[in-house]
Design a protein around this nucleic acid. Structure first.
Length: 472
DNA sequence: ATGTTC
């Protein structure tokens, strides 16, 4: 494939491909690791007409149809929406709750083990379909997001305000076209973690000296214990995504639209298919934000069981990295797809939720198990990438390849098993989650260095893992 | 990612 390479400044590359240009944000070390296949995928996606902008963050890696780590933008008037650029885990995202605890309060392994056990009790991880909240009407939640939750599950106003978006518009006319089993399968899944890379981690903060004012404004302090949650829309989003991908695939055939990659799926935003997809996607975003809310509710219950009923875990922020959002840029309405990309708005940007208007909002970036996660804040310069930064370390090896390349011993070493600083895990057997070991991921510090060096965002706090709860 | 793959 012909490629024309331009360098726009530190860590910002523009690659001219056959069907348009792709921006890549990566330092030299990470940039050198991108293989031909990720450029081929971008080129196939650039065949979708009238693309305004497309980019990779440094964590980009192969996905179905579109790389995970893609930001892709179309004008609302004449643009396209693509279920394959949203991805299969619609509404997947991050959430952080602070605690009043210092890391020394939970340094004792017995205390941390008690916390893990308590969290497992309130946040089901290894059994399917056993939510503790079967009294919640899932249909209310998918239509109204957090507004659809019963009041007894909203511990405070802050739980509704410190989120990227509490509720997404959903037209109930679509209810009669839902896949037949979706209610049955999604019922009982609210407040459950799911599997794969989803997790709940207990971490402590290292505040970045240059941004300690922002950290203080957010209520963060050095050594503070926080809880980070990574989960999505579970079966609800998966079933909708799969079904509607097939619908649009059929529509593309009837329109005579083809792509070299059969997994690149798209429809005009204004078409019946496009509008219906966005409507259904919104129901999955509502499920996803409510699911993370209920996981956090369970985590707070668990902390109360261990530390007493007065324990409060205020939400820092909840935001997603798999969706397509209508945003206003360059004086016009745009549809911004983020597939494994996180919005990071700078201070004073109008799209900030009011609570974070002055400072910009926390952008929550997970590492891999055993490595650091990050709490970041966007910079004004981030506009060059439509305020998108990375979504994590990014997978380096497939699950299969990881299981072949890495031993359980090596995994144990990376978790410092047997030492005072051991990162405790809920699973008795690490073999079961070997495909989630740090060796399966890129070096998150290189990813963060790429983002900071490109001027997209700054680090406010580094989050060091102390205990991890993973689903199966 | 997912009650998983026509």
């Amino acid at each position: 494939m012909n490629r024309i390479h331009k360098l726009h400044g530190s860590n910002h590359h523009e690659i001219g491909l056959e069907h348009g240009s792709l921006h890549v944000f990566a330092n030299d070390e990470v940039f050198g690791t991108f293989e031909d296949r990720v450029y081929e995928m971008a080129d196939n996606n650039l065949r979708i007409p009238r693309s305004v902008y497309m980019s990779y963050t440094p964590d980009a890696h192969i996905g179905i149809g579109t790389c995970i780590g893609t930001t892709a933008v179309w004008g609302l008037k004449d643009g396209f929406v693509s279920p394959s650029i949203v991805g299969v885990d619609i509404g997947c995202g991050m959430r952080v709750h602070t605690t009043p605890l210092h890391k020394r309060d939970i340094q004792d392994k017995g205390v941390r083990r008690a916390l893990i056990r308590a969290i497992e009790k309130y946040v089901p991880t290894n059994e399917r379909k056993n939510s503790n909240y079967e009294d919640i009407d899932v249909m209310e939640v998918v239509q109204h997001g957090l507004q659809g939750l019963p009041e007894r599950y909203v511990p405070g106003e802050r739980w509704l305000t410190h989120v990227e978006q509490a509720s997404f518009a959903f037209d109930p006319a679509a209810l009669e076209y839902l896949p037949p089993n979706i209610r049955k399968n999604a019922h009982g899944q609210l407040g459950t973690l799911g599997s794969g890379n989803h997790f709940c981690e207990i971490q402590y903060l290292e505040i970045a000296e240059e941004h300690k004012d922002t950290a203080a404004a957010w209520g963060l302090f050095d050594g503070q214990v926080v809880v980070m949650i990574h989960s999505g829309s579970r079966a609800w989003g998966a079933m909708l995504g799969r079904e509607y991908t097939q619908v649009i695939r059929g529509a593309m055939q009837s329109w005579g639209v083809t792509n070299p990659d059969p997994n690149v799926i798209y429809a005009p935003i204004g078409s019946t298919e496009g509008r219906t997809y966005l409507n259904l996607m919104n129901s999955a975003l509502n499920f996803a934000v409510s699911n993370r809310h209920m996981i956090a509710f369970g985590v707070q219950e668990a902390f109360r069981e261990v530390f007493g009923p007065q324990m409060e875990l205020p939400v820092l922020y909840d935001l997603m990295h798999n969706y397509a959002l209508k945003e206003f840029h360059r004086n016009q309405g745009m549809l911004v797809h983020r597939k494994g990309a996180t919005r990071a708005l700078p201070p004073k940007h109008y799209m900030n939720t009011p609570a974070y208007m002055a400072t910009g909002h926390p952008a929550l970036i997970p590492g891999s198990m055993g490595t650091s996660s990050y709490i970041m804040v966007g910079r004004d310069e981030g506009i060059k990438n439509f305020y998108s930064i990375c979504h994590g370390a990014g997978r380096l090896r497939s699950r299969r390849a990881t299981k072949q390349a890495v031993t359980v011993d090596q995994f144990e070493q990376s978790l410092k098993v047997g030492t005072e600083d051991e990162i405790l895990v809920n699973h008795r057997s690490l073999a079961a989650i070997l495909d989630e070991c740090p060796q399966a991921y890129k070096d998150v510090d290189q990813i963060i260095d790429s983002v900071v060096g490109a001027g997209l965002a700054d680090v406010v706090a580094k989050c060091r893992p102390m205990a991890a709860i993973k689903g199966l």
